[in-house]
Amino acid sequence: MTIGFYTTRGDYGCFSNFSDHGFELDGEYWSTTEHYFQSQKFATTPHVKQIRLLKTPKEAAIMGRDRSRPLRKDWEEVKDDIMRKAVLRKFDTHPEIREILLATGDEEIVENSPSDYYWGCGKDGSGKNMLGQILMEVREILRKGTSE
């Protein structure tokens, strides 16, 4: 069986980067993994704080995707590790969603995004599903009790 998610609704809504599960990371509080991830595109600039303080993850996504802002030069090399770090902290911080993730056993987890062929599976299922891959990696780390 494959476990799919896309929005914050449903049994696996907590897997979404828009889910309302805040955490502390890098000495700051982040409302969602989306806030953290989008802000890191602009590390060491004032854009980090601007994004961190936005009210919704949708606003953070819009600001993070705004290419009038100076994207860090190494973004393509570091984005997966940044996502992994944020997702791990989120599930490490919240026992109730950690249990949901661990209860998926060895099932494949897929972000059913019809438009995202990198983080999701894309409309035709040919996407990389990197968010699903990271969730499965985090599940394994938590299962082994090897996070921080």
Rank of each mutant, 00 (worst) to 15 (best):
K79I: 13
E108W: 04
E28Y: 06
F15G: 04
L102P: 04
T56R: 13
R139W: 04
I51M: 01
G64C: 03
P114N: 08
G125Y: 08
I62K: 05
R65A: 10
N112F: 11
E28Q: 09
F91E: 05
E140A: 00
K128C: 09
P70K: 04
G13F: 03
Q133G: 05
D124L: 06
Y6L: 05
R89G: 02
L53V: 13
N112I: 07
S39I: 04
G125C: 08
C121R: 12
M136E: 03
G4S: 07
Y36P: 02
F37I: 10
L131C: 07
Y118V: 14
T45C: 15
Y6N: 06
K49T: 14
H35M: 11
D11R: 15
R72G: 02
G120R: 01
M130Q: 07
G122T: 01
M1Y: 09
T2P: 10
L25V: 03
G105W: 09
A86V: 08
K90C: 08
G127Y: 07
D124Y: 10
F15W: 04
G27I: 00
I97E: 03
P114Q: 08
T104I: 05
L131D: 01
G4R: 07
D11F: 09
D74K: 02
G27Y: 02
G13C: 03
S126R: 15
D80H: 13
F5T: 08
F18N: 11
C121P: 03
D116Q: 01
S115F: 14
D92A: 15
I141S: 01
Q38K: 01
D66I: 12
E108K: 10
E140P: 00
E99M: 08
T33F: 11
W75M: 10
K79G: 11
D11Q: 15
W75H: 07
L25R: 01
N129Y: 03
S68R: 12
T56S: 15
D81V: 06
V138D: 04
G145M: 02
G10V: 00
R89D: 02
L131M: 11
L54W: 03
T146A: 10
Y118E: 10
R89P: 00
R67N: 14
T45Q: 14
Q50T: 06
I82P: 09
G105V: 09
A43H: 09
H47T: 14
K85S: 12
S113Q: 06
L25C: 02
E34Q: 13
E137H: 03
T7I: 01
G10T: 00
R9E: 14
Y29M: 09
L53D: 15
T33V: 15
I134P: 03
S113H: 06
L135G: 10
F23Y: 11
K55S: 15
R65T: 11
T2A: 13
K128E: 13
K49G: 08
R67M: 08
T93Y: 10
V87G: 03
D116Y: 00
I3K: 07
K49A: 14
L135S: 10
S126L: 13
P57L: 07
L102C: 05
T146R: 12
K58V: 11
P114V: 09
W119A: 02
K55D: 15
T8Q: 07
K128D: 10
K90V: 06
E77L: 06
S31G: 15
M1N: 08
I51T: 00
